[in-house]
Design a protein around this nucleic acid. Structure first.
Length: 350
DNA sequence: GAACCGTGGAA
DNA sequence: TTTCCAAGGTT
C-alpha cells in the first residue's frame, strides 16, 4: 500500500495506535504550554527515563513561567545538575524571560515568533506548537527521521543538516490537521518503541505502509555517515583546602564546555607533580598532597582522563578562585566529574 | 556547514 | 570494551 496514496488511512492507523498504546509520561498529563516547553528542552538528546525525575523536580521548583523568569540562574543550573548540555537550562530561562518581557507572559503560537526565543530551534518550535497549541507544524527529531526514512525508503544521509528539510516537507504533507499533537507524538512514540534502530516490525501499526519493510531493508535505514574519533585530554585535578577546612573552587567560563559550572582546580598536564605545577602556574605552595581518584570521563566529543589529589595550603585563593565551606560547595552546580571528586574527597576527609 | 555541547544506557 | 546513541540548538 503506497503511503502517498493513502495518507488518511495512515494518519488514522498511527493516531489510533498512539492513543491506545502511548506511555503515561508526566508531560502528557498536562496542557500547560510552559510545562510542555520545559519537557521538550529536557528531552533534547536525552532519554525519557533520565528526564522524568528532572522534569518533576524542575516543575515543582519553578511551577510557572513567571517563577522561572524570576529565579536566580545558579538555582536553575542546580536543578539541571547532572542532566548535561547545561546551556539548555540557561537558554530556557532566557527564552522564558523573553516571553515575559515581549509577549506579556503568553508563549507565542506561531513558528515565526516562537523560533526567535532562545534555545527554541526547528524541532522544539514544532513540538510546542503542535502539542501545546494544536498547530499543524512539523517536529522532526531523530525518531521521525528514522521512521519516515523507512516508510518512504529515503536514502539521504541524515548526518547532513540539509537532509532534515526533506523530512520537514514530508511531514507538512502528511500531518493530520485535526490532531497534529497525536500525529507528531505518534511518530516519535513509534520511533522510540517500535521503529527503533533494531525495529520490531511485527508489532508495527503502519507496516503495511512501509516501503523499507516491503523491501526487507528496514535495518539499512536511516543512512548515517560515520563521525570521526574523539580526542583524549589528560587532566589533573587538585582539591585544595585551607586551614579553616574550606574548599578552593572556580566557576567555568560562561561559554563552552560545562559553561558556568563550578570545579576544583584543574591542570591540563600529567607529566609534572602537583606541587611543581601549582608553584609554576599559580605561585602557590601546597602541602600534604595525597592521591585521591583516577577515572575517565567521556563527553560527546572528547574524553578527560582524570587523576585527582587533595592538598592543603595556608595561602590566599589565586585570581579567579574562592574558598567555600562544605555547605556552600554542596549548593554550587557541579558537573558529573566534579561531583565524583567531591563525593570521594568528602569520604576520605572523615 | 562543520564543530561544539553531557550523560548514562544498551547492544 | 567499544560503539552508538536519545523528543537538538548554537556558533
Amino acid at each position: 500500500m503506497q503511503l502517498i496514496d493513502h495518507k488518511e488511512e495512515f494518519r488514522k492507523a498511527l493516531i489510533e495506535w498512539y492513543l491506545r498504546e502511548k506511555r503515561d509520561l508526566p508531560w502528557r498529563r498536562t496542557s500547560n504550554p510552559y510545562h510542555i516547553w520545559v519537557s521538550e528542552v529536557m528531552l533534547q538528546q536525552t532519554r525519557v527515563d533520565t528526564v522524568i525525575p528532572y522534569y518533576e523536580r524542575f516543575i515543582s521548583k519553578f511551577p510557572t513561567l513567571t517563577d522561572l523568569a524570576q529565579a536566580k540562574e545558579e538555582d536553575v543550573l542546580k536543578m539541571w545538575e547532572g542532566l548535561g548540555y547545561y546551556s539548555r537550562g540557561r537558554n530556557l530561562q532566557a527564552g522564558v524571560r523573553e516571553v515575559v518581557e515581549m509577549y506579556g507572559s503568553e508563549i507565542p503560537d506561531t513558528r515565526q515568533e516562537i523560533s526567535k526565543l532562545k534555545g527554541v530551534g526547528p524541532y522544539t518550535a514544532g513540538a510546542v506548537l503542535s502539542i501545546a497549541f494544536g498547530v499543524p507544524e512539523h517536529a522532526v527529531d531523530g525518531n521521525v527521521m528514522r521512521v519516515i526514512s523507512r516508510l518512504l525508503l529515503i536514502e539521504e544521509d541524515i548526518a547532513i543538516p540539509k537532509t532534515k528539510k526533506i523530512f520537514e516537507t514530508v511531514i507538512m504533507d502528511l500531518i493530520d490537521e485535526d490532531d497534529p499533537s497525536s500525529f507528531n507524538q505518534g511518530l516519535m512514540e513509534l520511533g522510540a518503541t517500535i521503529c527503533t534502530p533494531n525495529p520490531k516490525c511485527l508489532l508495527c501499526p503502519v507496516r503495511d505502509f512501509c516501503e523499507a519493510f516491503h523491501e526487507g531493508r528496514q535495518r539499512e535505514l536511516p543512512l548515517k555517515s560515520k563521525k570521526m574519533k574523539m580526542k583524549t585530554i589528560p587532566m589533573q585535578v587538585c582539591v585544595i583546602r585551607n586551614l579553616q577546612g574550606e574548599w578552593l573552587m572556580k566557576q567555568r567560563p560562561a561559554t563552552g564546555l560545562l559553561a558556568n559550572m563550578w570545579e576544583f582546580l584543574m591542570i591540563e598536564d600529567v607529566r609534572n607533580d602537583i606541587e611543581v605545577l601549582m608553584k609554576d602556574n599559580y605561585g602557590m605552595t601546597v602541602e600534604r598532597v595525597r592521591h585521591l581518584l583516577d577515572f575517565k570521563h567521556i563527553f560527546s566529543h572528547l574524553t578527560w582522563t582524570i587523576t585527582s589529589h587533595v592538598a592543603v595550603t595556608d595561602e590566599r585563593a589565586p585570581e579567579g578562585f574562592e574558598f567555600f565551606s562544605s555547605e556552600q560547595v554542596e549548593r554550587l552546580p557541579k558537573a558529573v566529574p566534579m561531583m565524583k571528586i567531591w563525593n570521594e574527597a568528602q569520604n576520605k576527609m572523615q
